[in-house]
Design a protein around this nucleic acid. Structure first.
Length: 824
RNA sequence: GCCCGGGUGGUGGAAUUGGUAGACACAACGGACUUAAAAUCCGUCGGCGAAAUGUCGCCAUGCCGGUUCAAGUCCGGCCCCGGGCACCA
């Protein structure tokens, strides 16, 4: 064994041994318990960044830990290969997205391999290959048959100069990112997936996911946004159809003073026909992007329609307004405006001089409606027959009356709306639809799938090159009138089912085969918090689609979810688009992959964001060098001793060290297996190594045996985190075989026993002394010991304790009666 | 604007169920070794005050208030930072 730790050759040799043995090949074995560990697969953006390294290291540590615990582990890796950045690169460099993507995949695969992740590379998949995307085209046609796909018009960001649809990301301050032209909203027909058919199930399922972070479940719940309320119909003067609004506050109906409609609402469009200033306003509303954040932060503006509706109970005339803050996509695209009890309505009323009519009052105070709306429930006034009722009773009474008069009905409204999956982009999976001469759509017959994306095209920043690609557009030479759909799928489509395809990536006769029934669900999914809603909700939706297609069992795709925090640099997310990435290759070159992995896991707990620091990497490397040195010194002392067989022959100091070893095992197991706090597990091993380092001069057979046990423990506990170094040290410690096949250690209960412990003594909640007591000391014994302690007596000032609070094994708090001491 | 997180020494963080605030590191400083440097090893390291040897007291977990024998942890109100908001992935 060399005296110095040199990671460079060591890591390559260990990786070679793993490869030769096909060490991470996952094979279905019904006789063994499986563990499917998955990290969110990367978009091949070019190079790995530290966010990737963090993500994949966390997942790898869990996978290797579960393997050492004896489970049959599957950990695959693949590429989310379709997406916008490939088109941007093409525009900039003139390189076809296919080539750019494949080159990136090759580079990033090499980087991942250098980091020593325990992947089954035979299962690698690339979503931009027809072998993958043909199955989502197949699924799409199945869903079409089941009525879960439909076409409707929606608004997109339109760049009038570049003549192209823009992603929200490409809209900067309401302007196109390349042209700088003000972005317009344009209506285009798009394909939708009926995710709303599964709303209640997706919502209820959240309660059955105890392995998911509460924050993610809350976000999904809020995203789905179930709210119970009532549809109220208002008769509109001169219109055949009544105007329907949705409200969750029927108790405030008597306080409604106007109705506000979204700019896209049909009644508004109709009114605009003969009102030029309204047309002008709507044109203004067309400007700016379609992102909800943009809509919500706009200055609240509105215009009267010069029409009115009738209040369903009083018959009063309520003016109709168009308001830019009313969203056509939520509810009915129209709201009843109750300025006294809704803050947004209040602000709108104030700026447009509309009346404020308070009808709900708290019982304990009189709100000032000049300062703002009163939005809490209360007791009704100014409400005719509903006066003096509470909000909940009044709401029920108003609903009952509206229902009797057929002017309203209870309804549950959701914020969640159907998933628009069409993208006017080239580098994506073609939507398998054909249009006849009249423009009527029909699905591509199953036997004609896949619809292959021509890979030689290069987008130029204007419309999708598919639109001009005759070879793609025409189905066959006989039928020139039939044209292909040129839109491609949202790339979330690919990432919604890849976790299942990893079970059988080579299946070429079905989308998923029987192997999914062994591996699914994913036991541990690891990925960024930024995916808490969209990706994770779509995957849950897809799993149900696949289930109803008979392809998978169970309702949920991921049993446990770990959402890692961002890797930040200079306070901002480390990402390619921000250009503040750190390349892991430089660090691996200098310190080795193990140091990079250790640094990532030690610097912060996985769920927290991690502020990047170059200097802290040094410390991680130093620890590994120290561990190497300790093993080297131990090896130099002579042949490997056995482990100590029991505690009986050990002296007090040796028993303390042995307890430290086994406490470290217990803590590391809990930290890695239950808490996912890898940083504290590493700190515990560092403490153990410090304890071992302090006893360099102990060479008795018992001490050698203890050192052996201590060092073996360090190596085993670190094996999931620094796997290369651990393999080598494992063999240097005289162990046969590979550490990946070694069993995860278990603490020896006998070694953990303690005869005495430190008890904290507080006086009035302040720490005053620490005393040693027997482990099983009673409260009486603890009190007696505490009261005879010099420091405690000093702190008591001769006072008589009023009560004692005893927390066994932790503390004794002595409470004195309040002093009548006069201030100095 | 709405939803979800976070805020603890010079820095990253620890404190797991309301029970010893600052584990483990980084940086810095002092020392040993060395011709020198690197590496390594030893020590100091929240603030203020009193001691001068082990000490002792007070303050301190973004801010203000509350509950409790006891609050970084629970409750109410605020401030700041990060993530998401349906076409970035």
């Amino acid at each position: 064994m060399k005296s110095q730790y040199r990671p460079y050759d060591l890591e390559e040799q260990v990786q070679q041994r793993w490869t030769e043995q096909c060490a991470f090949r996952a094979v279905e074995d019904p006789g063994r318990r499986k563990f499917y560990c998955l990290a969110m697969f990367p978009y091949p953006s070019g190079r790995l960044h530290m966010g990737h390294v963090r993500n994949y290291t966390i997942s790898d540590v869990i996978a290797r830990y579960q393997r050492m615990r004896g489970l049959n582990v599957l950990q695959p890796m693949g590429w989310d290969a379709f997406g916008l950045p490939a088109e941007n690169a093409a525009i900039e460099n003139g390189v076809p997205p296919a080539r750019w993507t494949r080159e990136n995949i090759a580079a990033m695969r090499r980087q991942l391999q250098r980091l020593g992740y325990a992947y089954d590379w035979q299962r690698e998949l690339d979503t931009s290959r027809p072998t993958y995307y043909r199955w989502e085209q197949w699924l799409f046609t199945r869903l079409l048959k089941r009525g879960l796909v439909y076409r409707k018009e929606t608004v997109v960001n339109w760049d009038p100069v570049d003549q192209t649809v823009l992603a929200n990301e490409q809209v900067i301050d309401g302007r196109g990112w390349r042209s700088g032209a003000p972005v317009e909203r344009r209506r285009v027909p798009q394909w939708f997936l009926r995710i709303t058919a599964y709303t209640e199930e997706l919502l209820a399922g959240l309660d059955k996911l105890p392995g998911w972070p509460e924050a993610v479940r809350t976000m999904q719940r809020n995203w789905i946004g179930r709210s119970e309320g009532v549809d109220i119909e208002f008769e509109v003067a001169g219109a055949e159809q009544p105007l329907t609004v949705f409200t969750t506050r029927p108790d405030t109906l008597m306080g409604a003073t106007n109705l506000a409609l979204a700019p896209e609402h049909p009644l508004v469009q109709e009114a605009a026909r003969d009102q030029p200033e309204l047309q002008e306003f709507l044109k203004e509303c067309q400007r700016g992007g379609v992102a909800e954040s943009a809509l919500r932060t706009m200055e609240k503006k509105g215009l009267p329609l010069r029409r009115h509706a009738l209040h369903p109970i009083t018959g009063e005339r309520l003016p109709l307004w168009v308001a830019n803050f009313v969203l056509m996509t939520y509810g009915t695209g129209a709201v009843m405006s109750v300025p006294a009890h809704d803050q947004r309505d209040w602000e709108f009323a104030k700026s447009h001089d509309l009346p404020i009519r308070p009808v709900v009052f708290p019982t304990d105070k009189e709100p000032n409606f000049e300062e703002g709306a009163y939005t809490e429930p209360g007791r009704l006034r100014n409400s005719g027959p509903f006066d003096n009722m509470t909000s909940s009773r009044a709401g029920a009474a108003i609903i009952k009356r509206l229902e009797q008069e057929k002017r309203g009905r209870k309804r549950i409204n959701y914020r969640l709306h159907d998933w628009g999956i069409s993208r006017q982009r080239y580098w994506g999976c073609p939507i398998p639809i054909l249009y006849d001469a009249a423009g009527h759509p029909r699905p591509v017959p199953t036997e004609d799938l896949p619809v292959r994306l021509p890979e030689h095209l290069t987008p130029d920043g204007h419309r999708s090159p598919l639109v001009d690609c005759e070879e793609f557009l025409s189905v066959n030479t006989q039928d020139t009138a039939t044209r292909r759909e040129t839109d491609t799928f949202d790339t979330f489509f690919e990432s919604s089912w890849y976790y299942a395809r990893f079970c059988c990536p080579d299946s070429d006769t079905t989308m998923l085969d029987e192997r999914v029934r062994y591996w699914l669900p994913v036991n541990q999914y690891v990925g960024g918090v930024e995916h808490a809603v969209l990706h994770l909700l779509y995957a849950r939706f897809f799993h149900r689609l696949l289930r109803d297609e008979g392809l998978v069992d169970g309702d949920e795709p991921f049993t446990h979810l770990l959402t890692q925090g961002m890797v930040l640099k200079d306070g901002a997310k480390m990402s390619k688009s921000r250009g503040n990435t750190v390349d892991p290759d430089d660090l691996i070159q200098r310190y080795g992959a193990d140091t990079v992995r250790l640094y990532m896991m030690f610097t912060a707990p996985p769920e927290q964001s991690l502020e990047w620091s170059d200097s802290a990497v040094e410390g991680a490397n130093r620890f590994l060098r120290r561990l190497w040195r300790r093993v080297w010194e131990h090896v130099q002392e002579g042949p490997m001793p056995g482990r100590p067989s029991s505690n009986t022959l050990l002296n007090q100091e040796q028993r303390d060290l042995r307890r430290c070893i086994h406490q470290t095992i217990a803590k590391a197991d809990d930290d890695i297996g239950r808490r996912y706090t890898f940083n504290t597990a590493i700190a515990a091993v560092m403490e153990l190594l410090n304890a071992l380092s302090k006893r360099k001069n102990r060479h008795s057979p018992e001490d050698r045996a203890l050192n052996q046990e201590g060092l073996e423990t360090c190596v085993l506990l670190l094996a999931p985190i620094v796997p290369h170094l651990s393999e080598v040290l494992w063999n240097e410690l005289g162990k046969e075989g590979m550490v990946i096949d070694a069993a995860w250690p278990r603490p020896d209960p006998q070694a953990l026993l303690k005869e005495s412990l430190e008890l904290v003594i507080q006086v009035n909640g302040k720490l005053r002394a620490r005393i040693q007591v027997a482990t099983n000391a009673t409260e009486e014994e603890a009190r007696a010991a505490a009261l005879s302690d010099r420091k405690v007596q000093h702190a008591l000032h001769g006072g008589t304790p009023k009560r004692f609070i005893f927390v066994p094994g932790r503390l004794l708090n002595i409470v004195l009666p309040p002093t009548t001491e006069s201030p100095p």
